[in-house]
Nucleic acid binder design. Structure first.
Length: 415
RNA sequence: CGGGGUGUGGCCUAGUUGGCUAAGGCGCAUCGUUUGGGACGAUGAGAUCCCGGGUUCGAGUCCCGGCACCCCGACCA
């Protein structure tokens, strides 16, 4: 993409109505636009990051046999009444609306009920199970207070996966597998070493559940974690009982306490929704059984915000390559003819490059490249062209390499 | 939802006990100089001072009501 064609611009000063680092940097660099408190538009650069994150998740989920679908945000009241989650006293963060004829609708804050209801059409035999279905969908949550920039919005994209299993055993196996898949995802996104599988209370359906917590001062949670053993407990749920229940020896653990961001969670739902909505199957003996469920969530913008919180410096964002909007940022210092040619060659070679072809000063180009934060910076100038070369610098490092243009594509491919 | 704070061109800010045509920086436009770390000079465009009401000869400034945004807390399938 050429910067001259990108309509967004960077701004020098952080907007005054944002206190969190992630929103400040993302707005300054032109990745997001704030519509209102807790509601953000993803601009072209931001959308690219969102899509990168989604692709990683999609790849890992497809590998374990999950199927992607996309449900609706508009929800009928009657489905939610069946599980007693329509009542505002039970779930107070509904956004509601009405049809012209007065019918009440809700804007989904989660999708257990409608998906369970859909599955009634397709699950009737043990042969139909298990089913693993997921989507990337907008959730609406009427939070009393938005905070933490893009990390806790009133409207946000969530990856939510649901497992429909024969029984608890089959669900448990999948649940364990998902723990690994989630860690794989967080590793690929670059935050794995700071992310802990964290024990917490199970919400309404089971005694315990697990969260994935990423260490960061920007977090809203506090966890106790053992760095070496990679074991963590949410401070809110810390109890003597938890040690017994998980068969842990307290004296063998070396806990530190730190703030953290909940980047994912996995829940056992059991039969709660399937029972309420009548999702059953016939087993081998023709007996009717209730489907056993679990749900697995990752907030995509929150994950993006977490990456920004962790990877930045005084100059801007430092994207891990896996989620960077572009692999390389090409700056032309008054050498647009050569730069254009190089840009085309890089694109043809399948290298994602953001090309700064604007007629502005070198300083501004450098500053923008640092702020936007692509992993590799390529500079082409009179100086480098004298040696048929280009300058290559990694964002976040001070080392500069001079590379022959003819070798560039091979070198970029190998990094 | 409780407490605290803020609201002035696209962005960041100044604006005194109420007083003249609302000021500066960034950004934008034009011209010239500059050209590897947000360059410089000149000229110019751009503002229902959050909204509504009130007090006053006169309101960005004071009073009342509302809205939005930020922070702390509570809340967070």
């Amino acid at each position: 993409m050429k910067l001259s064609e990108l309509f967004t611009k960077t701004i020098k000063e952080a907007p005054k109505d944002e206190a969190s680092k992630n929103a400040q940097l993302l707005i300054q660099a032109g990745f997001v636009h704030k519509e209102m408190a807790g509601v953000y538009t993803f601009l072209p650069l931001g959308l690219r990051v969102i899509e990168k994150i989604k692709d990683i998740i999609r790849e890992e989920l497809n590998k374990i046999g999950a199927c992607e679908l996309k449900m609706t945000a508009l929800q009928q009241k009657n489905i939610w009444e069946k599980t007693d989650r329509w009542d505002e006293k039970k779930v107070d963060d509904w956004f509601r609306t009405t049809l012209k004829n007065g019918t009440e609708l809700g804007l989904a804050f989660t999708h257990e009920e409608p998906l369970t209801n859909i599955m009634k059409n397709y699950i009737s035999s043990y042969k139909d199970l298990p089913v693993y279905a997921y989507q990337f969908q907008t959730k609406f949550r009427n939070e009393l207070r938005a905070k933490s920039g893009i990390m806790r919005g009133k409207e946000f994209i969530m990856k939510d996966l649901y497992d429909f299993s024969l029984n608890k055993e089959e669900h448990d196996k999948f649940y364990e597998k998902m723990k690994e898949v989630y860690m794989k995802i967080f590793n690929r996104i670059g935050i794995g070493d700071k992310t802990y599988l964290t024990m917490s209370s199970g919400g309404s359906f089971s005694k315990y559940s697990f969260e994935f917590q990423t260490l960061s001062d920007a977090g809203e949670d506090v966890i106790l974690y053992d760095e070496k053993k990679k074991i963590a407990i949410n401070k809110d749920d810390y109890s003597e009982e938890i040690f017994t229940d998980f068969n842990l020896k307290k004296e063998e653990l070396n806990f530190k306490e730190a703030k953290s961001i909940e980047v994912g969670d996995i829940y056992t739902l059991g039969e709660k929704y399937s029972k309420a909505l009548g999702l059953t199957y016939k087993d081998k003996n023709g007996e009717e059984k209730i489907v056993y469920m679990g749900s697995y969530g990752i907030g995509i913008p929150r994950l993006m915000g977490t990456v920004v919180e962790i990877f930045n410096d005084e100059k801007g964002i430092i994207w891990p390559e896996s989620v960077a909007p572009f692999k390389a940022h090409l700056l032309s210092l008054n050498q647009n003819e050569k730069a254009e040619e190089l840009y085309k060659n890089l694109e043809q070679a399948g290298i994602e490059v953001l090309y700064d072809d604007r007629e502005i000063s070198a300083g501004e180009k450098f500053a923008d490249a640092d702020l936007i934060g692509c992993p590799l910076r390529l500079v082409i100038s009179k100086k480098t062209l004298k040696e048929d070369s280009i300058e290559l610098k990694k964002r976040g490092s001070d080392d500069v390499e001079i590379i022959k243009i003819k070798d560039l594509i091979n070198i970029l491919d190998s990094r």
